[in-house]
Design a protein around this nucleic acid. Structure first.
Lengths: 211, 211
DNA sequence: GGATGTGAATGTCTTCACAGCT
DNA sequence: AGCTGTGAAGACATTCACATCC
């Protein structure tokens, strides 16, 4: 399959969340125009995005809400459950480990690691913070799909290396470090300070609207 | 000035953070090629991005690190300090309110609001959680530039309306709600679950690399 | 009739390549 | 010689518009 743009994938995620809302209301079908309205895009964009993966709609009718949601979950790889660990149990790691929206979407936080003896052993919502030293062992015995990395920058690369050696295939990187990883590992960088700076730019230059 | 793409603004933020690293090492000049290497882009991209705002380099030499950093701070609107409030003092709000990188970049968290009586009055790092009911009054008396919105979805739009009425010009929206705001207000949507889903897509389709 | 799916047209962003300074 | 700044070319993404099917 031809390479899909990141912007497209993000829109597909949005479509899915709108579909789930509509599904809860008991609606059966939805048009590309309505989906576009909810997502702040155009009907042509919606149809084009979906057509990259197949033809899921019925001309004259629209899309079956339930069927399209299923297709999108399949496309996005959300039919399965992912085993996720949080590495770095600071404020942000703590918040993310307990973030409901992750579990709801099939991302199960199975453990939290930190190297600070002050933190090790503490419990949050039934998750006990483990010593990072146990990470290699745990990766070997139980495996992990995704890691959420929220360590201090100094140790970020070392922890990433360890995770990759242990077979992790995706890293959501909240540190300010640009991680070096092998080709087959996906890294999603999330940089809150950068987001605020983009907002700052918009204020300074008097653009309103969504960024 | 012609409209600048969001992707460009994001790269400028990255360039700035690399420059600050290089500055700490005491380097005086840097070439577009080196800056590109640090940021995972190309030298032509760096030069094009910068050229949208002026010509800051010297041919044959490169860019003055200190001077370029100053220009970027100016372009991004980071020469000033922003007054920021966090609205919604849950786990995520708590983490963000105490996030060091914000303060370091001139985003001063001046207050935190919540409507849950259980939370009101609690202190974090010298910030006391205030009752959301005080928000209108506070906005009138002291003003605010940016709000970080981390409320439950049910109240997100109502709080956004209140913030906009109180003169807030930018909202960093961590809720899953698509906010309706007047044209002149900038909204930056940050959706963690969506980021994880983009990662999930990458895993499913065996793309590695940065997303 | 009404909404999809899709080539073609348009618009936007990135890369190339080189003239022009230092 | 080295590196910037920038038109021109190329790649990519979005929008248009319409034939096609329910």
């Amino acid at each position: 399959m031809t390479k899909i743009a990141d912007s497209t994938v993000r829109r597909l995620s949005l479509y899915l969340s709108y579909l789930e809302g509509v599904e809860r209301e008991g609606r059966d079908t939805i048009s590309s125009a309505e989906l576009a309205g909810l997502g702040g895009t155009t009907s042509a964009q919606v149809r084009k995005d979906l057509s990259l993966f197949g033809s899921f709609g019925k001309r004259g009718l629209g899309y079956s809400v339930e069927e399209l949601a299923r297709h999108l979950r399949d496309i996005l790889g959300l039919e399965r459950t992912y085993r996720v660990a949080v590495v770095g149990a600071g404020k942000l790691g703590s918040a993310l480990a307990q973030y409901r929206a992750f579990g709801d979407r099939g991302f199960a936080i199975v453990s939290v690691y930190d190297s600070d003896p002050e933190r090790i052993g503490k419990r949050w919502n039934g998750l006990q913070i483990k010593d990072t030293a146990l990470l290699d062992e745990d990766l070997r015995s139980s495996g992990l799909d995704i890691a959420i990395l929220t360590t201090p920058p100094e140790v970020a690369q070392a922890e990433a290396d360890r995770l990759v050696r242990g077979g992790v295939k995706g890293i959501m990187n909240f540190t300010s470090v640009r991680l070096e990883v092998p080709e087959h590992v996906a890294v999603k960088n999330v940089n809150m300070a950068l987001e605020l700076q983009a907002l700052s730019y918009a204020l300074r230059h008097a653009h309103g609207g969504e960024i």
